[in-house]
Design a binder for these strands. Structure first.
Length: 139
DNA sequence: GCCAACGTTGGC
DNA sequence: GCCAACGTTGGC
């Protein structure tokens, strides 16, 4: 089981959209590194759902991979995985709150701000899960 | 809205 | 294969 983070601009595809549709393709990725990460996903992997390019970018929910990578017939060599909404995080975790924690300093989210599909280490996942359980991180 | 970072394209 | 030009992402 591996962990990931998926970015989406809420104007294009929001957490609300994800919850409404529940099971969807995660497509539209047009970057090789992000595509490689999509291809490395396995059924059962969990992903944070992150809202990007807004006033307060934040982790807002969790989705689970339900089908592995498939090729997009119309746009090789890119493709998609299938995900289902698991649920919202208890309290959204903003990028500024993430940056305030030294133990999250190595997240690609910070080091590689344009990458839209990235791996999350077990320890990072657990720590973020803890943070989303408490309001202490809200500034 | 601006701009930095970065990926992609295409001429040479 | 290099690099300039250009387009896109995403934080602020």
């Amino acid at each position: 089981m591996q962990y990931w983070l998926l970015k989406s601009e809420p104007g294009a595809w929001s957490w609300h959209d994800q919850m409404t549709h529940h099971v969807t393709k995660w497509d539209g990725v047009r970057n090789y590194q992000a595509r490689n990460n999509l291809r490395a996903m396995h059924v059962g992997d969990l992903c944070f759902f992150y809202h990007s390019a807004i006033k307060v970018p934040a982790i807002v929910g969790i989705v689970r991979v339900t089908k592995p990578f498939e090729d997009d017939m119309n746009d090789p060599p890119f493709g998609f995985v299938t995900v289902e909404a698991v649920g919202p995080v208890n309290i959204p975790l903003s990028l500024s709150a993430i940056k305030a924690n030294d133990s999250l300093a190595n997240l690609p989210l910070i080091k590689q701000s344009r990458l839209s599909v990235m791996p999350i280490k077990d320890t990072e996942w657990s720590f973020i899960m803890e943070l989303t359980q408490t309001s202490s991180h809200i500034v």
